[in-house]
Simulated assay, not measured.
Amino acid sequence: MIVVTGATGQLGRLVIAALRERGAAVTAAVRDLDKAADLGVPARLADYDRPETLVAAFEGATRVLLISGTDPNRAEQHRAVVDAAKAAGVELLAYTSVLGAPTSTLGVAPDHVATEEHIRASGVPFAFLRNGWYHENYDQTARQGAETGVIAGAAGNGLVASAARADYAEAAAVVLTGDGFANTAHELSGDTAWAMPELADAIAAAAGTEVVYRDLPLAEHRASLLAAGLPEPVADFVSGIDASIARGELAATPGELSALIGRPTTPLREWAATALKQS
Protein backbone atom coordinates (compact mmCIF):
# COMPACT_ATOMS: atom_id res chain seq x y z
CA MET A 1 0.00 0.00 0.00
CA ILE A 2 1.13 3.53 -0.85
CA VAL A 3 0.25 6.40 1.46
CA VAL A 4 0.32 9.98 0.16
CA THR A 5 0.47 12.81 2.69
CA GLY A 6 -1.02 16.20 1.90
CA ALA A 7 -3.31 14.37 -0.49
CA THR A 8 -5.96 17.09 -0.73
CA GLY A 9 -3.46 19.72 -1.86
CA GLN A 10 -2.89 20.66 -5.48
CA LEU A 11 0.06 18.32 -5.98
CA GLY A 12 -1.36 15.58 -3.76
CA ARG A 13 -4.57 15.30 -5.75
CA LEU A 14 -2.60 14.90 -8.97
CA VAL A 15 -0.37 12.24 -7.42
CA ILE A 16 -3.41 10.32 -6.21
CA ALA A 17 -4.91 10.46 -9.72
CA ALA A 18 -1.64 9.30 -11.31
CA LEU A 19 -1.35 6.40 -8.88
CA ARG A 20 -4.94 5.35 -9.53
CA GLU A 21 -4.23 5.32 -13.26
CA ARG A 22 -1.47 2.81 -12.52
CA GLY A 23 -3.81 0.63 -10.50
CA ALA A 24 -1.88 1.18 -7.29
CA ALA A 25 -3.39 0.54 -3.87
CA VAL A 26 -3.24 4.03 -2.45
CA THR A 27 -4.44 5.70 0.74
CA ALA A 28 -4.70 9.43 1.35
CA ALA A 29 -3.23 10.82 4.56
CA VAL A 30 -4.97 14.11 5.28
CA ARG A 31 -5.64 16.61 8.04
CA ASP A 32 -9.32 16.99 7.10
CA LEU A 33 -11.11 13.77 6.17
CA ASP A 34 -14.09 15.65 4.74
CA LYS A 35 -11.90 17.27 2.10
CA ALA A 36 -10.72 13.83 0.96
CA ALA A 37 -14.20 12.53 0.19
CA ASP A 38 -13.85 13.15 -3.55
CA LEU A 39 -10.42 11.53 -3.98
CA GLY A 40 -11.83 8.09 -4.71
CA VAL A 41 -9.43 6.33 -2.33
CA PRO A 42 -9.47 5.44 1.39
CA ALA A 43 -8.37 8.27 3.67
CA ARG A 44 -6.74 8.35 7.09
CA LEU A 45 -6.29 11.21 9.51
CA ALA A 46 -2.70 12.51 9.48
CA ASP A 47 -1.91 15.76 11.23
CA TYR A 48 1.76 16.77 11.04
CA ASP A 49 1.39 18.42 14.45
CA ARG A 50 -0.04 15.27 16.06
CA PRO A 51 2.55 12.48 15.68
CA GLU A 52 0.20 9.84 17.07
CA THR A 53 -2.03 10.29 13.99
CA LEU A 54 0.93 9.75 11.68
CA VAL A 55 1.85 6.35 13.13
CA ALA A 56 -1.72 5.16 12.63
CA ALA A 57 -1.90 6.65 9.13
CA PHE A 58 1.18 4.73 7.99
CA GLU A 59 0.18 1.36 9.43
CA GLY A 60 0.55 -1.30 6.72
CA ALA A 61 2.17 1.11 4.25
CA THR A 62 5.13 -0.10 2.21
CA ARG A 63 5.73 3.25 0.53
CA VAL A 64 4.98 6.80 1.63
CA LEU A 65 5.13 10.10 -0.23
CA LEU A 66 5.88 13.03 2.08
CA ILE A 67 4.67 16.13 0.28
CA SER A 68 6.45 19.04 1.93
CA GLY A 69 4.31 21.28 4.10
CA THR A 70 3.92 25.03 4.03
CA ASP A 71 3.78 25.92 7.73
CA PRO A 72 6.63 27.94 9.24
CA ASN A 73 7.54 24.95 11.44
CA ARG A 74 7.47 22.48 8.59
CA ALA A 75 10.98 21.14 9.23
CA GLU A 76 9.80 19.95 12.64
CA GLN A 77 6.60 18.58 11.10
CA HIS A 78 8.59 16.69 8.49
CA ARG A 79 10.72 15.09 11.21
CA ALA A 80 7.56 13.76 12.82
CA VAL A 81 6.49 12.22 9.50
CA VAL A 82 9.90 10.62 8.98
CA ASP A 83 9.93 9.19 12.48
CA ALA A 84 6.44 7.75 12.00
CA ALA A 85 7.43 6.20 8.66
CA LYS A 86 10.41 4.55 10.34
CA ALA A 87 8.24 3.22 13.16
CA ALA A 88 5.79 1.81 10.61
CA GLY A 89 8.56 -0.06 8.77
CA VAL A 90 8.04 1.82 5.51
CA GLU A 91 10.23 0.40 2.74
CA LEU A 92 10.52 3.61 0.70
CA LEU A 93 9.95 7.21 1.75
CA ALA A 94 9.71 9.63 -1.17
CA TYR A 95 10.01 13.32 -0.35
CA THR A 96 9.25 16.39 -2.46
CA SER A 97 12.33 18.55 -1.97
CA VAL A 98 13.60 21.45 -4.10
CA LEU A 99 15.84 21.59 -7.15
CA GLY A 100 19.51 21.63 -6.18
CA ALA A 101 18.62 21.53 -2.48
CA PRO A 102 22.14 21.11 -1.05
CA THR A 103 23.47 24.27 -2.71
CA SER A 104 20.30 26.30 -3.24
CA THR A 105 19.88 29.74 -1.68
CA LEU A 106 16.10 29.76 -2.16
CA GLY A 107 14.34 30.74 1.03
CA VAL A 108 12.69 27.32 1.25
CA ALA A 109 15.94 25.36 0.82
CA PRO A 110 17.10 25.14 4.47
CA ASP A 111 13.94 23.30 5.53
CA HIS A 112 14.31 20.88 2.63
CA VAL A 113 17.97 20.23 3.43
CA ALA A 114 17.13 19.63 7.08
CA THR A 115 14.42 17.16 6.08
CA GLU A 116 16.71 15.32 3.67
CA GLU A 117 19.35 15.04 6.38
CA HIS A 118 16.84 13.65 8.87
CA ILE A 119 15.59 11.12 6.34
CA ARG A 120 19.14 9.95 5.64
CA ALA A 121 19.87 9.67 9.35
CA SER A 122 16.67 7.67 9.95
CA GLY A 123 17.89 4.78 7.83
CA VAL A 124 14.58 4.58 5.94
CA PRO A 125 15.22 3.97 2.21
CA PHE A 126 14.44 7.23 0.44
CA ALA A 127 13.84 8.90 -2.90
CA PHE A 128 14.33 12.67 -2.98
CA LEU A 129 12.17 14.30 -5.63
CA ARG A 130 13.90 17.66 -5.94
CA ASN A 131 11.20 19.51 -7.81
CA GLY A 132 12.00 22.64 -9.75
CA TRP A 133 9.57 25.46 -10.41
CA TYR A 134 5.97 24.83 -11.41
CA HIS A 135 4.39 26.62 -14.38
CA GLU A 136 1.40 27.11 -12.08
CA ASN A 137 3.44 29.38 -9.83
CA TYR A 138 2.75 31.98 -12.51
CA ASP A 139 -1.03 31.49 -12.79
CA GLN A 140 -1.72 34.84 -11.14
CA THR A 141 1.03 36.47 -13.20
CA ALA A 142 -0.64 35.18 -16.36
CA ARG A 143 -3.98 36.67 -15.37
CA GLN A 144 -2.37 39.96 -14.42
CA GLY A 145 -0.42 40.12 -17.67
CA ALA A 146 -3.49 39.39 -19.75
CA GLU A 147 -5.41 42.15 -17.98
CA THR A 148 -2.74 44.86 -17.84
CA GLY A 149 -0.33 44.00 -20.65
CA VAL A 150 2.61 44.06 -18.23
CA ILE A 151 4.34 41.61 -15.91
CA ALA A 152 7.10 42.85 -13.65
CA GLY A 153 9.92 41.28 -11.70
CA ALA A 154 13.60 41.40 -10.84
CA ALA A 155 14.84 38.19 -12.45
CA GLY A 156 17.07 39.94 -14.98
CA ASN A 157 18.28 37.51 -17.63
CA GLY A 158 17.86 34.52 -15.34
CA LEU A 159 16.30 31.35 -16.70
CA VAL A 160 13.56 29.14 -15.25
CA ALA A 161 13.22 25.47 -16.24
CA SER A 162 9.66 25.03 -15.05
CA ALA A 163 7.24 22.20 -15.72
CA ALA A 164 3.57 21.54 -15.05
CA ARG A 165 2.52 20.37 -11.62
CA ALA A 166 1.04 17.29 -13.30
CA ASP A 167 4.49 16.42 -14.69
CA TYR A 168 5.96 16.34 -11.19
CA ALA A 169 2.98 14.36 -9.91
CA GLU A 170 3.44 11.76 -12.62
CA ALA A 171 7.13 11.44 -11.74
CA ALA A 172 6.22 10.83 -8.12
CA ALA A 173 3.81 8.10 -9.17
CA VAL A 174 6.51 6.46 -11.29
CA VAL A 175 8.91 6.37 -8.35
CA LEU A 176 6.29 5.17 -5.89
CA THR A 177 5.25 2.27 -8.13
CA GLY A 178 8.65 1.40 -9.61
CA ASP A 179 11.74 -0.52 -8.58
CA GLY A 180 15.34 0.59 -8.11
CA PHE A 181 14.60 3.97 -6.54
CA ALA A 182 15.84 3.31 -3.01
CA ASN A 183 18.36 5.88 -1.77
CA THR A 184 18.23 8.06 -4.88
CA ALA A 185 17.94 11.80 -5.47
CA HIS A 186 16.35 13.21 -8.61
CA GLU A 187 16.84 16.74 -9.92
CA LEU A 188 13.51 17.40 -11.63
CA SER A 189 12.77 20.32 -13.94
CA GLY A 190 11.32 21.20 -17.31
CA ASP A 191 13.02 20.34 -20.58
CA THR A 192 13.41 23.98 -21.58
CA ALA A 193 14.63 26.96 -19.58
CA TRP A 194 13.05 30.29 -20.40
CA ALA A 195 13.60 33.94 -19.50
CA MET A 196 10.89 36.32 -18.30
CA PRO A 197 10.31 37.94 -21.72
CA GLU A 198 9.44 34.44 -22.98
CA LEU A 199 6.91 34.11 -20.16
CA ALA A 200 5.38 37.39 -21.32
CA ASP A 201 5.28 36.08 -24.89
CA ALA A 202 3.55 32.86 -23.79
CA ILE A 203 0.92 34.85 -21.90
CA ALA A 204 0.46 37.19 -24.86
CA ALA A 205 -0.06 34.28 -27.25
CA ALA A 206 -2.67 32.76 -24.96
CA ALA A 207 -4.44 36.06 -24.30
CA GLY A 208 -4.29 37.34 -27.86
CA THR A 209 -2.93 40.67 -26.69
CA GLU A 210 0.46 42.32 -26.18
CA VAL A 211 2.22 41.54 -22.91
CA VAL A 212 5.68 42.83 -22.01
CA TYR A 213 8.07 42.07 -19.17
CA ARG A 214 9.35 44.99 -17.11
CA ASP A 215 12.55 44.20 -15.21
CA LEU A 216 13.05 46.19 -12.02
CA PRO A 217 15.90 46.59 -9.55
CA LEU A 218 15.37 44.15 -6.71
CA ALA A 219 14.62 46.83 -4.11
CA GLU A 220 12.11 48.51 -6.42
CA HIS A 221 10.40 45.20 -7.12
CA ARG A 222 10.11 44.51 -3.39
CA ALA A 223 8.70 47.99 -2.83
CA SER A 224 6.11 47.45 -5.55
CA LEU A 225 5.00 44.21 -3.91
CA LEU A 226 4.60 45.99 -0.58
CA ALA A 227 2.66 48.77 -2.29
CA ALA A 228 0.35 46.14 -3.77
CA GLY A 229 -0.54 45.05 -0.26
CA LEU A 230 1.66 41.99 0.23
CA PRO A 231 2.84 41.45 3.81
CA GLU A 232 6.54 42.09 4.29
CA PRO A 233 7.52 38.40 4.70
CA VAL A 234 5.66 37.53 1.50
CA ALA A 235 7.25 40.41 -0.40
CA ASP A 236 10.67 39.27 0.82
CA PHE A 237 9.93 35.70 -0.27
CA VAL A 238 8.69 36.66 -3.74
CA SER A 239 11.49 39.10 -4.46
CA GLY A 240 13.97 36.57 -3.09
CA ILE A 241 12.77 34.05 -5.66
CA ASP A 242 13.53 36.50 -8.45
CA ALA A 243 16.99 37.05 -6.97
CA SER A 244 17.57 33.30 -7.03
CA ILE A 245 16.36 33.12 -10.63
CA ALA A 246 18.77 35.88 -11.57
CA ARG A 247 21.57 33.77 -10.06
CA GLY A 248 20.53 30.83 -12.24
CA GLU A 249 19.30 28.57 -9.44
CA LEU A 250 16.17 27.39 -11.26
CA ALA A 251 17.71 27.06 -14.71
CA ALA A 252 19.04 23.48 -14.65
CA THR A 253 17.68 21.13 -17.32
CA PRO A 254 19.17 17.71 -16.54
CA GLY A 255 16.32 15.91 -18.28
CA GLU A 256 15.51 13.63 -15.35
CA LEU A 257 11.84 14.62 -15.20
CA SER A 258 11.07 13.79 -18.82
CA ALA A 259 13.11 10.59 -18.51
CA LEU A 260 11.03 9.48 -15.53
CA ILE A 261 7.66 10.20 -17.10
CA GLY A 262 8.67 8.94 -20.55
CA ARG A 263 7.60 12.04 -22.46
CA PRO A 264 8.54 15.70 -22.86
CA THR A 265 7.50 18.03 -20.06
CA THR A 266 4.53 20.32 -20.63
CA PRO A 267 5.53 23.37 -22.74
CA LEU A 268 5.19 26.84 -21.23
CA ARG A 269 2.75 27.99 -23.91
CA GLU A 270 0.49 25.00 -23.33
CA TRP A 271 0.31 25.88 -19.64
CA ALA A 272 -0.42 29.55 -20.40
CA ALA A 273 -3.34 28.67 -22.67
CA THR A 274 -4.82 26.41 -19.98
CA ALA A 275 -4.22 28.90 -17.18
CA LEU A 276 -6.06 31.72 -18.96
CA LYS A 277 -8.87 29.42 -20.11
CA GLN A 278 -9.51 28.46 -16.48
CA SER A 279 -9.35 32.02 -15.12
Rank of each mutant, 00 (worst) to 15 (best):
residue 1 M to W: 00
residue 1 M to C: 02
residue 6 G to S: 09
residue 7 A to H: 05
residue 10 Q to D: 13
residue 11 L to H: 12
residue 11 L to S: 10
residue 13 R to K: 13
residue 22 R to I: 12
residue 27 T to E: 07
residue 30 V to K: 07
residue 37 A to D: 03
residue 37 A to E: 14
residue 38 D to M: 08
residue 38 D to A: 09
residue 41 V to N: 07
residue 42 P to R: 08
residue 42 P to C: 10
residue 44 R to K: 12
residue 52 E to A: 11
residue 56 A to K: 14
residue 56 A to F: 08
residue 58 F to T: 03
residue 59 E to V: 02
residue 62 T to D: 15
residue 62 T to H: 13
residue 63 R to V: 04
residue 66 L to R: 00
residue 67 I to L: 14
residue 67 I to W: 07
residue 69 G to E: 01
residue 70 T to I: 05
residue 70 T to C: 01
residue 70 T to H: 14
residue 72 P to F: 00
residue 73 N to C: 01
residue 73 N to T: 03
residue 74 R to T: 02
residue 77 Q to I: 01
residue 79 R to K: 15
residue 83 D to C: 05
residue 83 D to T: 09
residue 84 A to R: 14
residue 85 A to S: 12
residue 86 K to R: 15
residue 86 K to A: 14
residue 86 K to D: 11
residue 88 A to V: 06
residue 90 V to Y: 14
residue 90 V to G: 06
residue 93 L to M: 14
residue 93 L to D: 12
residue 101 A to Q: 10
residue 101 A to C: 13
residue 112 H to E: 13
residue 113 V to Q: 15
residue 115 T to E: 08
residue 122 S to M: 07
residue 123 G to V: 03
residue 126 F to G: 04
residue 134 Y to K: 08
residue 135 H to M: 06
residue 136 E to N: 08
residue 139 D to A: 11
residue 140 Q to N: 07
residue 146 A to E: 03
residue 149 G to Y: 02
residue 150 V to N: 02
residue 150 V to D: 02
residue 153 G to C: 02
residue 154 A to H: 02
residue 161 A to L: 03
residue 162 S to Q: 11
residue 165 R to W: 03
residue 166 A to G: 04
residue 167 D to I: 07
residue 167 D to Y: 03
residue 171 A to P: 01
residue 176 L to H: 03
residue 183 N to C: 06
residue 184 T to E: 12
residue 185 A to Q: 10
residue 186 H to L: 10
residue 188 L to I: 12
residue 196 M to E: 11
residue 198 E to W: 02
residue 201 D to R: 14
residue 204 A to E: 06
residue 205 A to R: 15
residue 206 A to L: 11
residue 209 T to C: 06
residue 209 T to G: 04
residue 212 V to M: 03
residue 217 P to F: 05
residue 220 E to D: 14
residue 227 A to R: 13
residue 229 G to D: 06
residue 232 E to Y: 04
residue 237 F to A: 13
residue 237 F to N: 04
residue 248 G to L: 10
residue 250 L to W: 00
residue 250 L to Q: 05
residue 252 A to Y: 01
residue 256 E to H: 11
residue 257 L to F: 09
residue 260 L to D: 11
residue 269 R to F: 02
residue 270 E to T: 15
